[in-house]
Simulated assay, not measured.
Amino acid sequence: MSSIAKAKGFKNSKPGLWLSIGTSAFGAVSIVKDVKKARGENDTLKLINALVGAAALITGTALLVRELKRLGDDDVLLG
């Protein structure tokens, strides 16, 4: 198996999904900073941008959690 195929397989594995969820958590920290900065500057456009980014982050994380649950459903030991 090539290293590219291994990397693609890792993305859809449990450790890969957990890593992606962890990365999303770091993205959330950045979004919180952006929201605070936009509020401090009274910049509506920056605030909207940060909120749209937050919505995208939440949606992406929900998709990752759903995929993680699907992998768990396939595991006979988890029942």
Rank of each mutant, 00 (worst) to 15 (best):
A50H: 00
V52R: 13
S30R: 05
W18H: 14
V29L: 11
D43M: 04
G40M: 07
V29A: 03
S3Q: 09
L19V: 07
N42V: 06
T44A: 14
G40C: 04
E41I: 00
G53A: 12
P15S: 09
T59H: 06
T59C: 10
D73W: 06
K46S: 08
L78W: 05
S30E: 12
K8H: 08
M1H: 12
F26S: 03
A28P: 07
T44K: 11
S13C: 02
G27E: 04
P15K: 04
L19I: 05
S24K: 15
T59Y: 11
L68T: 11
A62V: 03
R39L: 12
K37V: 07
L47T: 02
K36C: 01
T61L: 08
R66C: 03
V52M: 02
D74Y: 03
A54N: 05
R70V: 14
G53C: 03
A62T: 04
V65H: 07
E41Y: 03
V76P: 15
V76L: 08
T59L: 13
T44C: 03
G9P: 02
K14I: 15
L19M: 14
D73T: 10
D43P: 00
S2V: 01
I21Q: 05
E67P: 02
G16K: 14
L77V: 06
R70F: 06
